[in-house]
Design a protein around this nucleic acid. Structure first.
Lengths: 236, 236
DNA sequence: TGATTTACTACACGCCGTTCAGTTAACGAC
DNA sequence: GTCGTTAACTGAACGGCGTGTAGTAAATCA
């Protein structure tokens, strides 16, 4: 039973590590991202703050891990909503993704803030890491939605700037050309615009800037996504 | 010289208060919003932290004031860029506003974070106050841009939801109907969508989510705004 | 000139992240 | 089964934070 020997300690370690993350998420849920403090987590666990340093090198490390987990869960929400719509319905898949993302954000507003905002003064996300991996996965999802719309979107496009592969980072280019070999560079730019369009109203809503204006942000958002879909030459 | 008597003390007070705000903005500029601490400000001024409480009841009060100032400066940047374009060129005015906003955000990234993000753990903006006043002013600016586009935009609109005045907050409705009596409720929804569309890519860029994707976020943003303008039935 | 208001200091409280020497318990090898 | 090793954890400390409060000194007002 050599494979038994990796357990006990390791199992307890994973378990404790998960408990730290769970409590951190819970603290964040009621109290905002700023409520994530090593001391508060340790207090909740009946430990001292220093003990957490056995699991995470620093508080920012913990936050980076949390961001990765949250981002992954958001992307998975979008993916499964998208996959519930047949691939032939490109517009419907975009709407499904967009709605799922907004609903995830409304259900996890603090998570949204952690991913897209300033989680903590002084925190700066690392260039790589789980957060970036999840972001790339989200980009891939959006790129797929754009790819499905590309034939019709091309006809509806205005006089955009001409884009080269060199306008984008090598990592993204390699990834995109591997996943969708037929797409031109302009599709990457369009993907970012789609992302921005979904993100804008969502961010304003989550950060409370729409609350003082309208009682029905959902309708505004849905109209916006509908307009996005028709602007890609699709129907709903 | 009774009007003289309001000076000296009052003048020094205003001066000190301005110095506090200036130093706070400077601390924010190099160090992020989280670097705004009463102790750091006081240290920079050769005072103790407690002294600042003579000028601002709490740190959140100071931040609220800063947000008001910053937001006002952003809106003024947009307004003056817009006013440099003749009112007959509705599309050009939208582009001018959008470009000015993005340039302001790039020049004051920490200010943008302060206005639209989580400046500090635990800080929640008050429902009224200078920040909200500036936001209303920004809304008015956008509403004016939409109003100029409304005749053509109507023709290009899809099958949006029907909006009533009751879908919006009384304050906004009163303000909008006073400034632009001819606009229907749907124009308010469109204004929010325009706002969201400008905000989305800007927020992603400021928070660093585009940096790992493209070297030319400006072009993407400008294409997006161009598309927005044509979707309103305008030309550029 | 005397009373009062104001700006400010000094100090205290409890919070925070982080570090580190020391203790305890589990582990792997013999 | 015992022993050296390693990992988890404690407890105390350091410096920094926002926020109060008591007291002082100066400017203002009557």
């Amino acid at each position: 039973m050599k494979e038994q020997t990796v357990s006990r300690r390791a199992r307890l370690r994973v378990q404790t590590s998960d408990e730290i993350k769970t409590i951190a998420l819970q603290l964040m849920a009621d109290g905002g991202p700023g409520a994530i403090s090593l001391r508060a987590i340790a207090r909740e666990m009946g430990m001292t703050a220093g003990a957490i340093y056995s699991y995470f090198a620093t508080r920012d490390d913990l936050i980076t891990t949390l961001i990765g987990d949250l981002y992954t869960s958001a992307v998975e929400a979008g993916e499964s909503a998208r996959d519930a719509v047949p691939p032939t319905d490109a517009g419907g898949r975009i709407m499904a993704w967009a709605r799922a993302m907004r609903e995830w954000a409304l259900a996890n507003p603090e998570g949204f803030r952690l991913i897209y905002g300033d989680p903590v003064p002084g925190y700066h996300p690392p260039e790589d890491g789980p957060g970036k991996a999840a972001e790339l996965r989200a980009c891939t999802g959006l790129l797929g939605l754009v790819a499905a719309a590309w034939p019709t979107a091309q006809a509806h496009r205005g006089d955009d700037r001409h884009y080269d592969w060199a306008d984008f980072t090598p990592g993204l280019v390699a990834h995109a050309r591997e996943e969708f070999p037929d797409l031109p560079p302009a599709a990457l730019a369009l993907t970012m615009r789609v992302w921005g369009r979904m993100h804008g109203l969502m961010a304003l809503e989550i950060y409370g800037h729409l609350r003082t204006l309208t009682h029905d942000p959902a309708s505004v958002y849905h109209d916006e996504i509908r307009d996005l879909i028709t602007s890609l030459g699709l129907t709903l």
